[in-house]
């Protein structure tokens, strides 16, 4: 900026207002209404958004961990072994795959996951863990109903 007098130079000390506000407006560029055009409203929303972003970095990791657990649990139940037995038996077999890789295998490589489940089930049987007894359906409503239909 060009100052023609010393008075203006003194009055304009501190950060340049335009560029300072422009940084905030850049962050508010995708908002709608006055939230993107009025500085005093934009700054509030930008602050809030930055707080959400900070919290979200943590939450994203938790959400992904939850998703992996859900997927591994689903994969385990397909093969008739529960999640905790599966993890415990893999650890006993020195298979130290983390939850992310196990979830990827359950989702994308079901045969690989099945072989892991077989390893875990064999180990559980060898160690005498009493978690593999799946109770068969005691009353066969479905088969009864299908019989009645015919």
């Amino acid at each position: 900026m060009v100052f023609t007098s010393i008075v203006n130079f003194v009055r304009s000390r501190g950060p340049d207002e335009f560029w300072r506000k422009r940084k905030v407006f850049r962050l508010a560029a995708h908002y709608i209404g006055r939230r993107r055009n009025c500085y005093s409203i934009a700054i509030k929303n930008v602050h809030r958004a930055l707080v959400y972003a900070t919290k979200g970095r943590k939450l994203k990791k938790l959400d992904m961990a939850d998703l992996w657990t859900t997927r591994i649990r689903a994969g385990c139940e397909e093969h008739g072994i529960d999640y905790f037995t599966f993890k415990e038996c893999l650890a006993r077999e020195n298979v130290f795959l983390n939850r992310k890789s196990l979830a990827d295998l359950a989702c994308w490589e079901p045969y690989t996951f099945k072989s892991l489940a077989d390893i875990a089930k064999q180990r559980a049987a060898d160690d005498g863990l009493n978690c593999l007894n799946r109770i068969e359906n005691s009353d066969h409503i479905l088969s009864k109903m299908l019989k009645n239909k015919k």
């Binding site: 998703l67 859900t70 689903a74 994969g75 139940e77 397909e78 989702c107 079901p110 996951f113 409503i141």
Partner: peptide, 20 residues
């Protein structure tokens, strides 16, 4: 659809359940 390994909250993979 949480019993499937392909589960995702945005993934429409739920099944039908009939309760009698």
């Amino acid at each position: 659809g949480m019993h499937k390994p392909i589960y995702h909250p945005l993934n429409d993979c739920g099944d039908h359940v009939i309760v009698i």
